[in-house]
């Protein structure tokens, strides 16, 4: 009796061990994914509150204080506070409305315009079929791309900078965000950075890519990022177009 039951017991033991290992694996991989998400959320927050942007914006506000323009200084200080508040709130949500997203981007862009003394202009257009209030998207995906456009694409150009941000639908349930600038283009910008002795590494692009990778893992598999140098499209124009495709739920 005892001897004959041994193979079954062994089998049972093997089964339960395999089962336990599988469970442990599942738990740890989930835990790892959660850790990754947490980490990227922090990175997103950090990328939006890029120290260079934060401290230079505050310096710009300080300059208005010393120019004795308290109204302008207060306006920008309030914008800075509003932006900070929105970013802090957004960092806790997986999705936010397009309306809120655009409000955040406007504050960000206006502060950047202040920093760069209006050396660029921007437009934000939303296609008619889109209801900004009802459309939910992962917050601030486009922001690092806009930052790239301003800090790398448009800085140092001697013509009027322009950034166009467009929200369109290519399919009924597919939102496309485009950030287009008329700057020097991503290829040239890379060369400039490398000539300065820096290894070209755009933190903004890396964070966006990482974030998209994680969003894919979380089930939004159709999300995509394309970055195109405009000189590859036609010889006469320069600039960069960054495009994010988001399938809506």
């Amino acid at each position: 009796m005892f001897i004959s039951s041994t193979p079954q017991v062994t089998l049972l033991v093997i089964h339960s061990v395999v089962f336990a290992i599988a469970i442990i694996y599942l738990i740890t991989s989930r835990k790892r994914l959660k850790e990754r998400i947490l980490r990227y959320e922090q990175q997103v927050l950090l990328s939006q509150m890029n120290p260079h942007f934060v401290f230079n914006s505050l310096t710009a506000i300080q300059s208005y204080i010393f120019r004795n323009e308290p109204h302008t200084a207060s306006k920008y200080l309030a914008s800075f506070a509003k932006l900070t508040r929105l970013i802090l709130e957004n960092s806790r949500c997986e999705l936010c409305s397009l309306e809120r997203e655009i409000a955040t981007l406007k504050l960000y862009l206006d502060l950047q315009k202040l920093r760069f003394e209006g050396r660029f202009d921007y437009t934000i257009t939303v296609a008619e079929q889109i209801d900004p209030d009802a459309t939910l998207i992962p917050p601030m995906l486009a922001q690092p791309l806009i930052e790239n456009a301003i800090e790398h694409g448009l800085s140092g150009i001697n013509w009027a900078g322009k950034i166009e941000i467009r929200y369109t639908l290519t399919k009924p349930k597919q939102l496309v965000i485009e950030v287009e600038d008329n700057g020097i283009g991503i290829e040239k910008s890379r060369e400039v950075q490398e000539s300065k002795g820096k290894q070209y590494r755009s933190l903004a692009t890396e964070i966006t890519k990482e974030r998209i990778k994680n969003l894919k893992k979380l089930g939004n598999s159709g999300i995509k990022l394309n970055i195109t140098d405009k000189s590859t499209l036609s010889g006469s124009t320069s600039g960069t177009i960054a495009q994010i495709v988001i399938p809506l739920k």
Partner: peptide, 15 residues
């Protein structure tokens, strides 16, 4: 390289 930083510092020095 930031115009506001130049402006702010020069005015602060002035004061």
């Amino acid at each position: 390289d930031e115009i506001h930083a130049r402006e702010s510092l020069s005015r602060m020095l002035n004061v």
